[in-house]
Write a protein that binds this DNA or RNA. Structure first.
Length: 113
DNA sequence: AACTTGACGGTCA
DNA sequence: ATGACCGCCAAGT
């Protein structure tokens, strides 16, 4: 059966290693529709309905800003989760974002070889 | 059944 | 450099 857009997103997000983060656009691009970055976020919103745990806290926008932290129960759960993985958050923004950036187009593809 | 919104991103003005 | 608009697909109302 073909995986839906959401399933593809889940597959990638679940493969994000701890202490790493990626952007919605990077995931969307990995799937094939870079312009569908909104859908990635939408998939995250539906991720809580998914059977498996989706580390959505490792997915941020291209600014490294925790845009979806408010969807984690209203508390700073997202920030605490990231800090618990060694990522420093300042003003809801990831410090050294590019340093923790994990590009599925490169890392994932490289691993498939 | 149709319109609007939505955790974004890139390009145009 | 900053601001605004369009594009993408799906779900909610």
């Amino acid at each position: 059966m073909e995986a839906d857009f959401f399933d593809k997103v889940y597959e990638i997000v679940k493969q994000i290693p701890p202490g790493k983060v990626t952007s919605y656009g990077a995931i969307a691009r990995c799937i094939g529709s870079a312009r569908s970055s909104r859908m990635v976020g939408w998939a995250m919103n539906a991720s809580h309905t998914h059977a498996e745990w989706i580390p959505a806290h490792r997915v941020v926008n291209r600014n490294g800003l925790l845009t979806g932290k408010k969807f984690f129960g209203g508390e700073n759960i997202m920030q605490e989760l990231l800090e618990g993985e060694g990522i420093i958050i300042e003003d809801d923004q990831i410090v050294n974002f590019e340093k923790h950036f994990w590009d599925p187009n490169i890392e994932l593809k490289y691993s498939l070889v």
